[in-house]
Design a protein around this nucleic acid. Structure first.
Lengths: 353, 353
DNA sequence: GATGATCGTCGAAGCGCTTCGACGATCATC
DNA sequence: GATGATCGTCGAAGCGCTTCGACGATCATC
């Protein structure tokens, strides 16, 4: 009974179908939809009605071919080892949601494909731009990106960010913030339980920057600090903590960066005779919801994955319109104080000063 | 100095460039690349050399338009609330990797877009097929999928799978397997700490099926069982466990399905006077690596996310070649015994029999 | 009331591929 | 050695859009 009844419906509704139904030229339909030329209100509403009625969606391939825009961006994720899974997930969610709000879709690419994958994607015009997560300090994809003329935004900051657009939490500042908080509570000996060792070895920016921030702040505050990598899982965490407390029994403050270690750290400390926060204060760098759900609720510098995702897409959309972006956008760390940190305990056995 | 030197390089290398360089027709280049017609060895190698030298990658839009195949599949993920994040991640990784091995790319879509998103993606021919995760028992997208003629594979099994292709772990069997293991160790009173309440309310298949499997197996083995939803995070887990042990102090076996609760469960039980496994045995349904890293290492039925991802893609590729797939592929549960389960303790106060 | 600018629409061209039919060249066959 | 099948290649057409130039119609202007 609809206007399409009787048509053999050989698959898809095309712009020609809409044009015929609305009694205009195909180009007019195109202009109505793109808004690139003035169209009378009457024509516009007639075309829109036909689009609605026929359920027209422009063919993506044809549109991409004609306009030289795919309306798709690539999201290159580290889908393998040792990543902060929830952070990646939150980030991906924000990216997809934000991209859709700009009428773009998101192609999921794994870091495994490496530089060749970027080249393939760019050369085939599958995507208009790229979001690159898990950028290493000396990432082999960075030089390629510079020469490929492929609009891109990096999550994380390589050693030399010249000519790039990068977004990230200011991990250096985050590390410093954590140390400042502990120092302010009177802690004089602290430790950083950082990312897994493999992450440092890969030269991943956020891990190195956090460590640097922690060390510099410790110096500044006159606090002694030990920095250790920290693997995922209860077993490794127990070993790391046992070692740490054996060699440095007077450590009273912990900065924990690896989310997958935070739960085990909180669970293990009491079994080693350290209550949180009365004996040992713990401050984490992790997603805020996770920190809030822990027991005790964690003082933390939240990793604003969603905010980073939104910003990254917005910056990329700007570059697709040929607007230059800022070189590095570092989101300011904001400490949230909860129940896992408290004043340093009064010094007992072996305390100096 | 290469053959392209001097060309103004106005963007991309096209099939015409390759044809000219190799001294053949464009269609011949196409046939070399697709293998759809016989080509002499000489021509083939000349064309391939030119492709290599010029760095030719077919334009994705043009190819999709001409061939009516985008070589892209959609992956519809629940990027929001209460999902088993690591499982989703492993699954996505396997999907992308497997799809690439079939020369396909993966478009990331969120469940938020709902049926309208599926319709858009299908009508615009952005993708050739769809992988749908987080399928609910009465999922509103299922009827649409049936009528859309869009090749699809579901992860999870809706109430009525007729005419669909579904892949999943056999969660019903997994629940039964866990109960059988505990029963075999002599446990007479057990509990299921299941998915978060919201997951049951949404009517998510895996949660309901696991619960049903647990209950039926308990009946069969003459074991008493309590089933409770279980939220993420240490705070909620402690409350749930406290309640449980208050009302059912003689529970000696726990089946835990929510990965985000497993760590807290292991950490909390000792604080409630229950050692694992001597007082309470714990068996989990979760990724195997996670179980292996826990302390104590967990007896579990692994969720084979990667296997599910691989199978799902393989089935979808079959459907893209017009092969019909099986209605439901349920992967057999395989219990891995580790250190978190042991013989039931000898009955103490209030024990019956 | 003639004139130039703007508005609104159309039709043609072209984006870069794949696929179809055509057609010589080569092959096996009787 | 003629004949039909197969092989290998070419050129044209067409996939469904966007964009450009053209051109009436309408508008403001002197």
């Amino acid at each position: 009974m609809t206007a399409t009844a009787g048509r053999p419906s050989p698959g898809q509704v095309t712009i020609a179908d809409v044009a015929r139904h609305a009694g205009v030229a195909a180009s007019t339909v195109s202009y109505v939809l793109s808004g690139k030329r003035a169209i009378s209100a009457l024509t516009r509403s007639r075309v829109l009605a036909s689009v609605q009625l026929l359920g027209y969606h422009p063919n993506a391939g044809a549109r991409a071919l004609a306009s030289r825009r795919a309306n798709v961006i690539a999201l290159v994720l580290p889908l393998r080892a040792g990543m902060q899974v929830p952070v990646v997930m939150q980030f991906a969610t924000a990216v997809v949601t934000t991209a859709r709000s700009y009428d773009h879709d998101v192609l999921l690419v794994t870091s495994d494909e490496g530089p060749a994958g970027l080249h393939r994607i760019a050369a085939s015009a599958l995507v208009d731009g790229v979001l690159l997560m898990d950028v290493e300090l000396h990432d082999p994809r960075v030089p390629l990106l510079r020469k490929l003329a492929l609009p891109s935004v990096l999550i994380g900051v390589p050693a030399d960010p010249a000519g790039l657009t990068c977004v990230d939490l200011d991990f250096h500042g985050a590390g410093a913030e954590c140390v400042g908080h502990l120092a302010g509570l009177g802690h004089r000996r602290i430790a950083l339980l950082g990312a897994p060792a493999a992450v440092y070895e890969r030269g991943t920016g956020f891990a190195h920057r956090t460590r640097a921030g922690v060390r510099e702040a410790a110096d500044r505050h006159g606090v002694q600090v030990v920095t250790l990598p920290c693997e995922d899982g209860a077993i490794d965490v127990r070993r790391t903590l046992t070692d740490l407390l054996e060699h440095h029994p007077d450590v009273s403050g912990l900065v924990v960066q690896n989310e997958a270690a935070v739960g085990p750290v909180l669970a293990t400390l009491p079994t080693l005779g350290r209550r949180v926060p009365s004996d040992v204060s713990v401050v984490a760098i992790c997603p805020d919801e996770f920190a809030a759900r822990s027991s005790p609720a964690l003082t933390c510098v939240p990793v604003p994955a969603e905010e980073v995702g939104r910003q990254a897409v917005t910056l990329l959309m700007g570059k697709l319109r040929d607007e230059a972006g800022p070189e590095a956008t570092l989101l300011a760390p904001r400490l949230t104080v909860r129940d896992s940190t408290a004043a340093a305990p009064v010094v007992g056995v072996g305390g100096d000063r």
